[in-house]
Design a protein around this nucleic acid. Sequence first.
DNA 1: ATGATAGTCAATCATATGGTTGATAAAAGA
DNA 2: TCTTTTATCAACCATATGATTGACTATCAT
Lengths: 124, 124
Amino acid sequence: MIFDPTTDDRLDRAFAALSDPVRRGIIARLSRGQATVNELAEPFEITKQAVSKHIQVLEQAELVTRTRDAQRRPVHLNAARLEAMTAWIDRYRLVHEQQYRRLDAVLETIDGADGAATQGKEEK
Amino acid sequence: MIFDPTTDDRLDRAFAALSDPVRRGIIARLSRGQATVNELAEPFEITKQAVSKHIQVLEQAELVTRTRDAQRRPVHLNAARLEAMTAWIDRYRLVHEQQYRRLDAVLETIDGADGAATQGKEEK
DNA sequence: ATGATAGTCAATCATATGGTTGATAAAAGA
DNA sequence: TCTTTTATCAACCATATGATTGACTATCAT
């Protein structure tokens, strides 16, 4: 064990939060500006209570924050957490891409050798 | 209802897949090149069967693919799906950012007004 | 004070998820 | 053939998740 940011509870929650279409819909809506629970619930066919729960999930994932406005509880997007997610993904996308370049380079070096090179399994 | 890519079953699975630290560990490992189930299971304290299930989850999310090599079933990263995830996130990050710029522009137009403008909430 | 508006809390339910153990399949090695 | 290696299948269990209904709290409007 003892990994890198791979073992990060906050990422667990962030990714889990975005695995639901309702919550992604909420995030999409909030990207255009804050909204109340009622406003967020309107496009969906589920109860307001269910949407309220979804918002709590997003809040625990720190993807959104809430303020007060009389009886309203406007919800705001926290873009910093979205950024943390892409940072994680891009990190490994980049490693993978570089790994490919490295393989390409190797194949290019061999070059003149037998054509069987393309099927090769590269060692770690 | 009837949203954009927000209602995409493949995204559901992709985000759900990355919500588990074991599966993120597997992705991290695969970014450095293909690996067998045993190799992938080695760093974790859970059974090989459990890891096998995790790989199936990643496979259904299309984040990895599998080939054959005798009794081995090497697992490979599918970076295209990672890219689809960042594409979704970045789309709304961008909208949100532009929304901010728009707000900034408005505040700048008002300008001469009270200096309270700077109190707006800055991210990260 | 009364009532409407906005939202949460609590109990409940069905299904999904992550893990286990034990049995089995498939290919390689002897 | 018999054994080892690699991996999956099957049954099972505990907990988490998404949704519902009904009751409740808090704030605003008259």
